[in-house]
Design a protein around this nucleic acid. Sequence first.
DNA 1: CTTGAAACTTGCTCTAAGGCAAGACTTTCC
DNA 2: GGAAAGTCTTGCCTTAGAGCAAGTTTCAAG
Lengths: 191, 191
Amino acid sequence: MSQLDLLYRYMKERTGLSEQEFVPISACFQPFSYKTNTFLLREGEVCQHNYFVTKGSFRMYHVNAEGMELTRYFAFENKFGTNLTSLIEGSPSIENLQAIEPLEVLRISKSDFFGLVENNPPVNKIYRNILENAYITSQKRIYDLQGMTALDRLRWLLGQYPMILTRIPSRMIASYLGITPYTLSRLKAQL
Amino acid sequence: MSQLDLLYRYMKERTGLSEQEFVPISACFQPFSYKTNTFLLREGEVCQHNYFVTKGSFRMYHVNAEGMELTRYFAFENKFGTNLTSLIEGSPSIENLQAIEPLEVLRISKSDFFGLVENNPPVNKIYRNILENAYITSQKRIYDLQGMTALDRLRWLLGQYPMILTRIPSRMIASYLGITPYTLSRLKAQL
DNA sequence: CTTGAAACTTGCTCTAAGGCAAGACTTTCC
DNA sequence: GGAAAGTCTTGCCTTAGAGCAAGTTTCAAG
């Protein structure tokens, strides 16, 4: 299945748009590839694109004042991912977006994207859906970080993404769970 | 300033809509009052309304398996607040919405609200704005919970809402910060 | 295949925060 | 105003997870 087919299927599921209606949308997306560990966006830059992942994955992380990496989100296949805060506000990103496996994406520029959001009803609806899901996910994550132990959070993550421990380096998972790699290593022994 | 004036000003700031355009929107909102500690929504119910706070405040909190309260958000004057997850998905809420001061709101039903989102461009834009802000706030909160100490988080909260310690019971602030009331009490001594 | 560099594990110690208990202070309401 | 209930503080001990150091495994590059 081609990259654009994946995007069409994603959009059709959420809006029921026709192939006809998809034409002007697909024209705004270009394919890009990134090698493992390369950056789609670095801290301090203003985010200029939205990305739809067709293969591989990337992560969004922040380096805090103590130099510790905090991973907020992993974007896998069939997900849109970007630094929404920077994209929306036009502010410098506090996050890095980094490929963590060989990555293929469809990329759309900020202006094309928000142009479609304003003028193309299916994309307006998709964007709403993206925001709603991002928000619901964030809300769940806040409750998890507040109320669950590190081991509970690890078990939950493995329930969501059983392959994650083999696909993604442990230190990134640790920084997603809000624990150190030492602790993650010890918790794995308890699974 | 009347309740509807506050709402109009809120919307005008975000969309520049005219008084003319505001008429059909305002028709969907009704004023409600709640006494301190009463509930706008209880866990298990499906959320049927969106609320715009004109006076006082309410909180959104969840009771976890151990019976511990986790507060996710305080809605003060000039904020929309609801359980978006339940409102969007039509699923039972895992949160309680509870007035924490004498509260006045303008209330809109779910169907009126999503009707306006679909068909009324200013409201579509407002909703996008609400979602964007909710998401940006959540994202910041995730990084704070992951990367800051309890004392850092308390200081940050006081920077945002200097009055919060006098307006709102400590145990709710503790549950917002993700700490116990004991710890909050000890941290206050260190401020 | 070798070699160096990461990444991962694990023993030991330390620290931030949790949690109990008891006391002080505040509301509330008859 | 006084009793009762709730809220806040604080001493003491416990615990989850942090952090260092030293060893082990994995992996990529020559």
